[in-house]
Design a protein around this nucleic acid. Structure first.
Lengths: 240, 240
DNA sequence: ACCTGAACACCGTTCAAGT
DNA sequence: ACCTGAACACCGTTCAAGT
């Protein structure tokens, strides 16, 4: 039984990438000496996904933006999936966790982390479907995770708690941002949703309408803070 | 400026669907009297997505499974996106919230809700990318939301808190399930991840490795319970 | 009148032919 | 030796031709 190659973006696949301990360095092309560097390709791909969405993005579109042909892309990457995995990691590279160094306790460190990821992800809402499809353990993703866990451990949080707290916060941020700013959300999302609820039959959905009336008036930022507070306060019950 | 039609799966799009207050009834075909009923098409599509994944799923595959042609599908649905929106809602229809009626307080109601969604979603891991791409306000999605909110309000949770607690729990469950059972997760995900962390340089990732050592030994179910407990306990701080 | 085979304009990927 | 135009086997969608 021949081992099937790991899917691009999975942990096993990233492990086979060159130079995983040097997050800033772009992956080297694996054959020949190319005229395009991989960082430029990934950066252009991210820009195109930002502008046109994952749905409309295509290798032909990318090749044209690079003044090249689609076949050339296969000299730098094994295929579209591999390019997308690097696009995801590029977004994670934009996460700014500088405020971590001045955080005074683990609660503040977790809050800083959530806001850092939230700020980066909302700048690239069209990449959110990719972030959910790929396990984010590329070089930048790993580096950020290391940074956060180091801060949490330094503040005295037990290792088992730190690891799971990070995962819980990451899940929350990605899920929240996807629902609020993701491709499915219309430009005027909140008003659209309000109009939607207003059109529902009060007989069939009494609880939903009562809840919606108190929901749609709340600002999105406050909503984000609400869920984050839930997580941090819940964690405080389990930490010393 | 002509109004652009709402994207399939968005709230405005679902609002234009017929019969939103009768969740069990399948949507009626909009032209003629077809030989295939829409429920059968959606059910077959879900089975094919379960078996082959969203990536491999195609309208040709669906048409062949129905002993029909792709053009016939366009007599029942406006296109692939619309079919996918119904597939997502079908999965939400499988969520069993029967235990809600015997829940004794809002904490238990929230826990029951999380487990109900978790159980349904893990049965259809390949649909998780779809669940993130579409706002789940189809007939089944709405009915479940109504059921949960009614239970929370009945147990005395304020409306503003109930609505946001539901959203926070839903985000958490979808995010967690996607990372654990989603398409990107390999069959032997936990051992793969463990091997991955084992291969990292201890000099570069000291915190990550320390946290991973205490993480990979934990069962997945316990991991799910951990984050859920965070949410519920955090919420208790804000509720009477 | 309803249905659908066949065509259309794409897509990711490959490879033989170019330089 | 490196690069890439053109082809390949698909895809979602449309429509004219069938019944």
């Amino acid at each position: 039984m021949a081992a099937t190659p790991p899917p691009p973006g999975s942990p096993a696949w990233w492990a086979a990438r060159p130079d995983p301990t040097a997050p800033a360095a772009a992956a080297e092309p694996r054959r020949g000496r190319p005229s395009l560097d991989t960082a430029h390709i990934v950066g252009t791909a991210l820009r195109l996904v930002d502008e046109h969405g994952t749905q409309a993005f295509s290798l032909r579109m990318l090749a044209e933006a690079l003044n090249s042909g689609t076949a050339t892309l296969y000299r730098h990457f094994d295929g579209k999936d591999e390019i997308m995995a690097y696009v995801v990691d590029r977004v994670l590279g934009e996460v700014n966790l500088g405020a971590l160094t001045t955080s005074s306790d683990w609660r503040e460190a977790l809050t800083v982390t959530a806001h850092g990821f939230h700020d980066a992800l909302r700048r690239h809402p069209n990449t959110l479907p990719l972030l959910m499809a790929y396990v984010p353990v590329g070089p930048h993703g790993l580096a950020q995770r290391e940074r956060v866990l180091a801060a949490l451990l330094e503040h005295g949080l037990p290792a088992a708690l730190a690891a799971r707290a990070f995962t819980a916060v990451a899940h929350y941020v990605v899920g929240f941002t996807a629902q609020q700013y993701g491709p499915a959300a219309a430009p005027d999302h909140s008003t659209e949703v309000a109009a939607f609820y207003g059109g529902l039959d009060p007989e069939s959905y009494p609880a939903l309408l009562q809840a919606a009336r108190s929901l749609t008036s709340v600002a999105v930022d406050e909503e984000f803070e609400f869920g984050l507070t839930l997580l941090v306060r819940g964690l405080a019950h389990l930490a010393p």
